[in-house]
Every structure is written in structure tokens, then in C-alpha cells.
Design a protein around this nucleic acid. Structure first.
Lengths: 357, 357
DNA sequence: AAGCTTCATTAACACGCGTTAATTGATTCT
DNA sequence: AGAATCAATTAACGCGTGTTAATGAAGCTT
């Protein structure tokens, strides 16, 4: 094990003190180092290929220069999350330019409080971004009380922690309303996840409100829960089709789930949108290339990540930003998976509806 | 800013020395602490909610207890990588159980050497996993020379660094051969990325060899380069279709690219596999639900991640494992996107082929 | 009772850096 | 010329922990 190069070595070679080296490397405007001295130090550092030790620096400065992205899902579901790459991409963008590192952590259910505290109190990280925590996350109160810099991607009702999110309910409302405007009256819903995830329950709420606002029946038999991946969407749709319920459109809580839903529809010998229209949610990059092109609610994933990150940095500096809860806009992207309900189908549905009135 | 709880505080409350506290928390078998003392310390720590400071620990022990996942792609492409979640899921699995943190870093082209060295020399991390570096990565030699613990996911010809990968060439050969066995003779290839990424060039090589081994013509006009995302696959396929070249099957370098390819085929009014058969690569979880179900080469992404991680941990312990280059098996998963070439098409192709012989 | 061994604990130093207050040297002011 | 100002640098302390060598305490042998 060869000896490590320390700031002491650099100082010696440059003929200055260790303090000066430190000043140069943190280029603090408050302290004045002569340009030529600065130059000498820089050169010595380069010659020795000196890299300031991160741990020592963190220890002395009490700043880890790192933030954490914390996920509360099983690795199994993480692996199925097509949203994640966009999030990470956005975070890396911001973090990189500020010379901060990004830590990724997965917390086991039941371990939230411990994990959150050990990460921040141990100063592994200066702040954290919580990716879609669940309703019942017990660690959130602890974070709130201790005033730990923290931003939630998503929302948790009852928590006052800063967050960045879209208006899931309104966006779902818009998506379902699109189907209604196309003439659909019997619309099914497959959630994106269990309802303990707030995004899932909010989107379901938007679905319900859209139907109610349009004066349509709310048939609980047309609702199924999926579980993040397309396999669960596929299963949910199969179950729904097997149930013999009557519907001409589906609102899926995520594009990944929608993909499974579409596969089940195809497999049943039905066509999209001829027999069944479908709207997804997220508008992941692949949605446009699904078959047929998936109408979806565009969620600015990259922007959510960037804004979360920026907000977190403000909090870490101790600044209390004016807006501690940020809502980002969504938009409905209409593609080929939705169309006006066909006359024939309307008719068929009309007949069926007799059973329900 | 409230005072931090240190091991000193715990020692005081427990009525022991700081050293003893340290022994308890690292439960080192070498040192014997009486069970009752141990108990006292644990309780005191709990009462004060003590969390050992990570930086101080890293500084003193010279171990960061962290590894890094380093990516050499632009955030833009990272966002399009449906493979990434599986990789991260696998890594998290392994690091979690060993109490190690996972750092994610993106390195700018040209900054490789600097980034690699600053991350490891600064002891931000103890070791690193390089995700699909490029051929010409100049930082690899530095890593090799300095003996920094490091595992490559993928392969870089000319580098002796340990790696975990699949046999891309053989797998591609298998995929293309599947098409050949189905009777296809004019097979196009759309790579998964630029050829400076070794996986792309190796898969292309496998494609070429399969054709040659079968005694088929190698038409360079049937090869296009895509660039990670489905958009690039779509564009490449459009370009290929516009060129008027004749082919009855496509080998796509990744499933994500394949999705774009399929979209272009559908848009051209052709059917899959009726008019064109297609094979993908990676077998991401969604591939089964694409329309039609995508025949693909299954890559054990999760296992690649886990093995890389384990290998890295061995290297970090200074152990030199017997196998420093691990190849994992692949398998062709046959779905609905491939079928025997139709008689009519064979005929048509036969006619066309006259032009080429 | 003195010496030896084993077990449990501790004092003291090291890790590499940030930061404050103090020091030096040069310059300007009275 | 001496005092006062300012720019540039440094000595010295602290951050919270790991770890080694040393210290006690207790049991055993002779």
C-alpha cells in the first residue's frame, strides 16, 4: 500500500503551508491568496496527483457533499420501474454541476425511520430525496421534527415536508375526461400500484371524480389494482376481461402497467382502439412506440428530478425557499390507442346498460 | 444546530471508555467485550440515538464502505436505458446486506481518468463498477496500473480489468441463427449503440459471423446504427425501409431499439412477423408484452449486477479470486415476433435475389 | 505470596482536512 | 520616523472515529 498524497505533501513541494493549500482548493473568496502562490500550489498538486480526501473534508467541514435518493420499494419493483432512469438522469444533471455525489439507497419496509436517521445523522449525506414514499411511512415525522433537509418526489397527505409533484388527481381527471369526450361511458381503471402509494390513490380519485363530474355510473367492478410492472397490469386486465364486465375503455395508472394491459387485450383477440381505448400515465419515452401508440399523460420526469434536487440544495443551505411545494404541469398526449367509441359498440353498450339501470 | 451525539457521549453514559464503544459497534471478534458491557453500551447508544459518523469512520479506517456505479453515457441516454433499473436493483440487493452504500456517478467523455482517480483516490468509494465503458476509454489503463478495485460490466478489448459479461458475439450469433433456421436469408441488423461501445460491435460481429457461417450474403446496406433509445431505432428502421433494400427479418441490438424498429414497421403498413420477423436483445421485463411478443436474447441483468458486485467485494478485500472474468449464460426466448418465412415471401425474395447473384 | 497467564478495558495517537485567530511583511498615513 | 492599515500566510486546534500498545484485574501455578 503506497502512501497517500496529502495536502501536507503538496504544501511542502509548493513551499507553503497546509492552510494555504486548503485555501486554494476551496477557493474561498474571503481569503486572499496571491495568484502566483495559487499557481504554485496547483502545479504541485498536479505533479503529485493530489486528490483531497473526501472523508477528512466531510469530517472537518461537516458537509458530506452528497445527497441520497431513497426508494421504498423492493428491488424487484425497482427493476421494473421505467421511470427511474429518467429520474436518475435528471438528478445526475444537477448534482454533477455542483460537485455533489448521489447516493442510492433502498429502504426496507419497517426500517424507514432507522434508515433515514442513520443516513443523515451519520452525515453520510446532507439531504435526501424520497421517491414516492407510502402513506404510512413512519419515518417522515422524524425527518420533519429533526428538520432534516428532505424533499419528497410525490406527496404524502399529512406530511408537511417539501415536495415536488404533479397534480395526480387533476391529471387523471383529464385523462379519463378525454375518454368521456370520445363518447366512452363504461371506463375501467387499472391502478399503477397498491393504494398505499399516494400516486396510485390520487390517480384513482381523479378517475372517480371524472366519472362523477360527467354524471356517469361508478362501477367498482371495473377497478383493479396493479403493482408497478407490466406483468401485474397484464394479470389485472385478464382478470377484468374474465369477469365479463362491459367496458369500452381503460385508464391505466402507468404506461408500464398499460403495456401489460394492452398485451392482455391483444391476447383476448380484441383490438385497440377499435374494441377498447386505453390511456396510460407517465408518457415514458417508449410510449410513443408501443402498438398502438399509447395516449398518455405526460409527466415531466426529468424536470421533477431537477426541481427536487434544486429545492433540496436550497434547503441544505438553510434557505427557506418561498415555494416549498412545487406542482409541475402535465399534458395529455393523444396517440393511436384512443378513439371515439364506435356506433356499433355504443349500441351494444346501450343494450347492456339496460341491465344496470 | 444541536450538538451531535458522539461515541464519547455514549461512553460516558455507559460508564466505559470510547474505545470500548468502538469495539462494540464494530463487533470485532479479536477484542473481547463482556456481554453485559456490550449490552450497556448498546442501550446507551439507543437512548441517545447515536449514529456513528460515517466520515470519521472512513477517515480512521481508510474504508469508505461505499462503491460506485460509474456510467459513461450522457444523462440523456441514461434516461432511456431500460436496463438500468435491473442493474441497480441487483446492486442494491448485494450492497444492502453488506452495509455498503452505492454511489452513482456519470462521467463526461474526456473526464474519465480524472473522475475515476478522484473518486477512488479521494476515498469517496472503495471500488467501482464501470457500466459499459467505451473502447477508447483512457481511464482504464490508469485504473489497471494503480490496482484500484474495479469491475467492468461488459468488456473492453485490450484491458485486463476484471469483468462480468455475457458472450455478446455468441448470443447475437444464436439470435441471428434462429432467424436463419426459420428460413430467412436477407436479415438486417440495427445495432444497439454506436460501435465504440463494445457490446454494440460484438453483437454486430455475431450477426456477421452467423451469416457467414450459414453461407449467406453479407449485405452492408442492411446494417444501421441506433443509439440506445427507441427513437433512434425507429429512425434507423425508417431509413432502412426507405432505402428500398430487401429483407424479411431484423436483428435489433437491444429491446428498446427493437421497440422503435417495430413501430416503424407497423407504421409502414407491414406486419410482424408476417412481413418481417424481428429479434431483440436483453429480454427486458416488458419485451414479453410488446406487440407482438418480442423474441429476444435473455440477458440475466440482475445476476450480472450481483456477480459484479460480489467480484468487486472480493477485490476490495485484496483477495484475488480465481475467476476474474465471468461470463454468464444467455438464452433465446422465442415469442411471436418471429416465424418461418412465408412461401410467398420466399418466392418474392427469390426473385429479388436474382438481382444480387 | 510472588510470578505468570488470560481476559477486559483504556490512554493515546493517527487519519487528513477546515477554520479561526494570530503573525509576518509590506505599504500607507500622520 | 513611528503608527496604523492591509494583504498574505501560518500555527494550532478540532472534527469523530479506528487501532495499537499499555494497563488492570482476576485466576492459576509453584
Amino acid at each position: 500500500m503506497e502512501k497517500r498524497v496529502t495536502s501536507h505533501d503538496v504544501a511542502e513541494l509548493a513551499g507553503v503551508s497546509r492552510t494555504t493549500v486548503s485555501f486554494v482548493f476551496n477557493d474561498d473568496k474571503q481569503y486572499f491568496v496571491r495568484p502566483e502562490t495559487r499557481q504554485k500550489v496547483r502545479e504541485a498538486a498536479r505533479k503529485l496527483s493530489y486528490y483531497p480526501n473526501a472523508s477528512a473534508r466531510a469530517l472537518a467541514s461537516k458537509q458530506a457533499k452528497a445527497i441520497g435518493l431513497i426508494m421504498t420499494r423492493d428491488p424487484h419493483y425497482i427493476a421494473a420501474d421505467n421511470f427511474l432512469p429518467q429520474i436518475i438522469g435528471g438528478l445526475l444533471d444537477v448534482v454533477k454541476e455542483r460537485q455533489i455525489s448521489l447516493l442510492i439507497e433502498w429502504v426496507e419496509p419497517g426500517e424507514q425511520t432507522h434508515t433515514y436517521l442513520s443516513l443523515t445523522q451519520a452525515k453520510h449525506i446532507d439531504g435526501m430525496i424520497l421517491l414516492t414514499p407510502r402513506f404510512d411511512d413512519p419515518g417522515l415525522k422524524a425527518l420533519e421534527q429533526l428538520g432534516i433537509p428532505c424533499v419528497i418526489m410525490g406527496q404524502v397527505p399529512g406530511s408537511n415536508l417539501p415536495f415536488v409533484d404533479i397534480d395526480n388527481c387533476a391529471a387523471a381527471h383529464m385523462a379519463v375526461n378525454h375518454l368521456i369526450e370520445l363518447g366512452h361511458t363504461r371506463i375501467a381503471c387499472i391502478t399503477n400500484a397498491q393504494l398505499s402509494y399516494s400516486s396510485a390513490s390520487q390517480r384513482l380519485l381523479g378517475y372517480r371524480q371524472a366519472l362523477v363530474d360527467a354524471g356517469l355510473d361508478l362501477d367498482e367492478n371495473l377497478i383493479r389494482e396493479a403493482d408497478f410492472d407490466s406483468v401485474s397490469g397484464y394479470a389485472a386486465m385478464q382478470n377484468l376481461l374474465d369477469s365479463g364486465s362491459n367496458f369500452s375503455a381503460v385508464f391505466a395508472g402507468s404506461d408500464t402497467v398499460a403495456l401489460g394491459v394492452m398485451a392482455a387485450i391483444h391476447e383476448a383477440g380484441l383490438t385497440i382502439p377499435g374494441d377498447i381505448s386505453i390511456v396510460g400515465f407517465d408518457d415514458i419515452p417508449e410510449a410513443a412506440h408501443y402498438y398502438p401508440g399509447l395516449t398518455s399523460v405526460h409527466v415531466p420526469a426529468n424536470e421533477i428530478a431537477r426541481q427536487s434536487c434544486r429545492l433540496l440544495m436550497h434547503l441544505m443551505k438553510g434557505e427557506a425557499p418561498e415555494d416549498t411545494s412545487i406542482f409541475l404541469p402535465t399534458a395529455l398526449i393523444s396517440r393511436q390507442s384512443t378513439c371515439e367509441i364506435e356506433r356499433s359498440q355504443k349500441h351494444r353498450q346501450g343494450e347492456k346498460l339496460v341491465h344496470f339501470t
